[in-house]
Structures are given as structure tokens and as C-alpha cells.
């Protein structure tokens, strides 16, 4: 009975979806707003521009307020998860991790951190940015938990980084509000395109986001692996 009902719902929705999608042109051209973004991506006169990576340009400058909300949602999820996991006994491991895992972690962990930092520092030039970089850093923390069963992560350090980076994001936005008249205004100018120090506040904000996401997800890993 349940299967038939589900099939009817899925079929109806599928027909509707097919009807809608068949009316959307595929692979024809850019929308009007995207044309504006692409045309103004690298231009000395426009304060919004200067990044090689147009996606980063949109995410951090045009939709910077949305990104602030996104970071807040991630923070709320991490907080909610630690609330649910508070006082919960985690699983006891019966065997030690193998020698390969232990030695390999010692060798590879600094490089994972380096890759994470590289990805969020070069967010305005290459694919990547704050969120993937932070996730890669958290992967390194998870690897440490897998190799050392009784490792205790520095909880207060994560909280300090998280809080100060969140504040710094808002402060950068407020400086833009004072200097340029709008929240997250690019007050540093475009700079020389293609260089590491360019694109105004995008690298600053992406370093802030990368550290914040890295600390947040590391705290999330800590909550799931440790007895709180």
C-alpha cells in the first residue's frame, strides 16, 4: 500500500518536474544578471571586482551577507550537534590502530593543513575557497583522532578561533559600511589581477571563513569522537 502511494506521488512529481524542465532552455546562454557579473569581473573602475574566480567574486562580494548567514547556519548546526551529544558515552575501541595509520598520520598531517591553508588563501585565484579549505583542515583533525584514541583536542582554542573569526567578518563588513556606505564594501580596491594580494577584501574574508569553518568542523569532529 505504502509503495503504491509513494509511486503515485513520485510519478506525479516526476511528470511535473519533466514538464517544467523541458521548458527551460539548456546550454543556450547566460542570464542577464550573470552577464553583469561576468562583464564586471575584472575591471578597475568597479569596486566590486578584481577576482579571477568569478564564483568567489559573487559569493564573497555580491552575496557576502548571505555568506555571513551561511557561516551562522554552520555554527548553529555545530552547536546543536554538541547539545545532542552532550553527556553521551561514545564507543569504546577494542583494538589499537595499526602502525601504518599511526606513522602515516604523523607524516601526512602537516601537508593536509598546508593544503587547506593553500586552498583558502588562493580562493580568489583558483577553484576553492574558505569552505573547502576549512573542511580539509577538519579532515586532518579527524585523522589525528583515528590514529590516537585518547587524544584530547584543544577545545578552548577552537572556540576562541571560531568566535574571533566570526567577529572579524562582521568588523570587515562594518568598516566597509563606514568607508563605502554599504555592508561588506570592497574598501581595498581591486589590485593587480592574478596576484596573491589582490581582489580587495576577498582574501581577507576567505582566510577568516576558512579558519572559522576549520575550527567549527574540527569542534564537530571532536564532539562526535570524544566523551564530553
Amino acid at each position: 500500500m505504502r509503495h503504491i502511494f509513494a509511486l503515485i506521488v513520485v510519478g506525479t512529481l516526476g511528470l511535473g518536474l519533466f514538464y517544467t524542465l523541458s521548458h527551460i532552455p539548456f546550454g543556450k546562454g547566460l542570464s542577464e544578471v550573470s552577464k553583469y557579473y561576468v562583464e564586471n569581473a575584472i575591471d578597475k573602475n568597479d569596486p566590486h571586482a578584481g577576482a579571477t574566480n568569478i564564483v568567489t567574486d559573487i559569493v564573497v562580494l555580491y552575496r557576502g551577507f548571505d555568506t555571513l548567514g551561511e557561516v551562522t547556519v554552520l555554527f548553529l548546526a555545530a552547536t546543536g550537534l554538541s547539545v545532542f551529544f552532550f553527556g553521551l558515552k561514545k564507543k569504546e575501541y577494542t583494538c589499537e590502530p595499526s602502525l601504518i595509520v599511526k606513522r602515516g598520520t604523523g607524516i601526512i598531517f602537516p601537508f593536509i593543513l598546508l593544503l587547506g591553508v593553500y586552498i583558502f588563501v588562493h580562493g580568489h585565484l583558483t577553484p576553492g575557497g574558505g569552505f573547502p579549505g576549512g573542511v580539509i583542515i577538519a579532515t586532518g583533525v579527524l585523522l589525528i583522532y583515528l590514529c590516537c584514541r585518547d587524544y584530547k583536542a584543544p577545545h578552548s582554542l577552537f572556540k576562541v578561533i571560531e568566535g574571533s573569526m566570526g567577529t572579524l567578518f562582521v568588523i570587515v563588513g562594518l568598516i566597509g559600511l563606514i568607508v563605502g556606505g554599504s555592508f561588506l564594501f570592497n574598501f581595498l580596491g581591486a589590485g593587480k589581477t592574478g596576484e596573491l594580494v589582490s581582489a580587495g577584501i576577498i582574501p581577507i574574508l576567505y582566510i577568516v571563513i576558512g579558519l572559522k569553518v576549520g575550527a567549527e568542523l574540527s569542534g564537530l569532529v571532536k564532539d562526535t569522537m570524544e566523551d564530553v
Partner: peptide
């Protein structure tokens, strides 16, 4: 190609993880 959907999906992926 159109950069705007990619920026939107970047947001959606992060929210999805959360």
C-alpha cells in the same frame, strides 16, 4: 559558463552538510 548557479550551489552544499 554561468557563475551564478555555481555560487548558489556552493551555499547549498554547506547548508546540506550542516
Amino acid at each position: 559558463v554561468d557563475p551564478l548557479p555555481q555560487a548558489l550551489v556552493l551555499t547549498a552544499i554547506v547548508i546540506g552538510v550542516a
